[in-house]
Simulated scan of single mutants.
Amino acid sequence: MEALNKSFFLFLASRPSLDRFAKRWGSKFGADKIVGGETFEHAVPLIQNLNSQGLRVTVDHLGEFVASEAEARERTLECLQSIRMISAHDLNSQLSLKVTSLGLDINPELVWENMIQIMDEAVKHDVFVTIDMEDSSRTQATLDLYKALKKKYNNIGTVIQSYLYRSDQDLDDLNEVKPNLRLVKGAYKESAKVAFPDKSDVDHNLKLLIKKHLLNGNYTAIASHDDAIIQYTKELVREHGIAKDQFEFQMLYGMRSERQLELLAEGYTVRVYMPYGNDWYGYFMRRLAERPANIAFALNGLFKK
């Protein structure tokens, strides 16, 4: 049933025809509970509220797969504005972005130029930037771009997905640049040729990646709502004497808020991933696919008066 639910919502995520309907009625499905608003200005008070509780944030302007250079440059300007707003409002927030929104599929020179602009601005305002990982067809290009940028900038990280067979080797290949990585299970529909089809294997591989990356001495963001993964990390760092400033837990905005505060009270660093923008449909459907409990959350929003 879990596999069926995941396939169903990933199918919906790929339907452009549903996007217009979703944007109109999204709040009825609870989208406004997991998205920080249509603009960064809408997200600012929400970020400030999280910061006031001791939670850190990473913001992401939703959108991917742009079709033109003009669109890619517009998304770049949005990233630049987000960085400036983080600084202007003195927010404890990082920036996450998807390089397909900056022109990865259009022209390698275009995405490089756009990333250089973003990173120069991020350095100026002391903002950390994470390159999100997308589907497996773009993994190598994303990692190549990250490694090239890491040679120029220290304030940049990326993401490794445990459902991909290749991820253990990717971790080894990246270790030479001492990467700051967010480790996740993965949320895109992938073939069994490239990804573990069974959840138990995905979970096991995530534990292996967490252990390897932490023992390599690298900063690690464990991005999971899974209590088994969280508990594993706690026991691992305790066993190996790993300091709490070498890692953090990350969770999605609007999900497991009480658990976030519990971890914070235990002395762990907790960062909340807050997307914003009106291009939220694919993101929302992938969240439903990732975690069955999110389906009940959406239905509750639909029928809530």
Rank of each mutant, 00 (worst) to 15 (best):
Phe249Ile: 06
Asp135Ile: 08
Leu214Ser: 00
Lys151Ala: 10
Leu55Cys: 04
Gly36Cys: 10
Cys79Ile: 04
Lys147Ala: 12
Ser52Gly: 05
Leu209Thr: 05
Asn294Thr: 10
Gln260Trp: 01
Ala88Ile: 11
Arg75Pro: 01
Met255His: 14
Phe128Cys: 09
Asp32Pro: 12
Lys189Phe: 07
Gly186Asn: 04
Thr233Trp: 05
Asn107Lys: 11
Leu149Arg: 00
Glu248Met: 06
Glu69Phe: 02
Val66Lys: 03
Arg75Met: 09
Gln53Arg: 12
Asn154Met: 03
Gly157Pro: 00
Leu80Glu: 07
Pro179Gln: 03
Gln246Glu: 10
Tyr188Trp: 00
Ala122Glu: 01
Thr233Arg: 04
Asn107Ala: 11
Trp280Tyr: 15
Asp168Glu: 13
Val272Thr: 11
His42Glu: 13
Glu176Ile: 09
Tyr281Asn: 07
Lys305Leu: 05
Ser191Cys: 01
Asn5His: 15
Asn300Ala: 10
Asn155Asp: 02
Leu209Ala: 05
Gln231Val: 13
Asp90Gln: 10
Arg20Trp: 06
Ala72Phe: 05
Arg259Gln: 12
Leu236Ala: 03
Ser224Asn: 10
Ala70Tyr: 06
Val127Ala: 09
Ile34Met: 15
Pro16Cys: 11
Arg56Lys: 14
Val66Thr: 06
Val35Asp: 09
Leu110Lys: 02
Leu252Asp: 11
Glu235Met: 09
Asp279Cys: 06
Ala223Glu: 07
Asp198Pro: 01
Ser27His: 15
Asn205Pro: 08
Lys152Cys: 00
Ser101Cys: 08
Leu264Tyr: 00
Lys152Asn: 02
His204Val: 13
Lys150Cys: 03
Glu235Phe: 08
Thr233Glu: 00
Met251Ser: 11
Ala88Leu: 12
Gly217Thr: 11
His125Phe: 09
Met85Asn: 12
Gln250Pro: 13
Ile83Gly: 03
Glu2Arg: 15
Gly282Ala: 14
Ala70Gln: 01
Lys150Phe: 02
Ala223Ser: 09
Met133Tyr: 02
Ser93His: 00
Lys193Gln: 05
Val177Arg: 06
Val194Pro: 04
Leu171Ile: 08
Leu4Cys: 12
Tyr146Thr: 01
Phe21Gly: 05
Leu149Phe: 01
Thr130Tyr: 15
Asp120Val: 07
Ala187Lys: 00
Phe249Leu: 07
Ser200Ala: 08
Arg238Val: 08
Arg182Thr: 07
Lys234Ser: 04
Leu4Gln: 15
Asp144Tyr: 06
Glu266Asp: 02
Leu97Cys: 12
Asn92Pro: 05
Glu71Pro: 01
Ser167Gly: 07
Ser14Val: 11
Thr100Arg: 07
Leu91Tyr: 02
Ser200Pro: 05
Ala228His: 11
Val44Ile: 14
Val270Leu: 04
Gly267Glu: 04
Lys6Asn: 14
Tyr281Glu: 08
Leu288Gln: 01
Leu145Cys: 07
Leu181Gly: 03
Gly37Leu: 15
Gln117Tyr: 03
Gly103Asn: 07
Trp112Pro: 01
Thr269Asn: 14
Ala148Gly: 11
Gln81Glu: 14
Ala221Cys: 13
Leu252Thr: 10
Gly186Asp: 02
Asp198Glu: 09
Leu110Ile: 05
Gly26Asn: 13
Glu134Ile: 00
Val194Thr: 04
Glu258Lys: 09
His213Asn: 02
Phe65His: 08
Asn5Met: 14
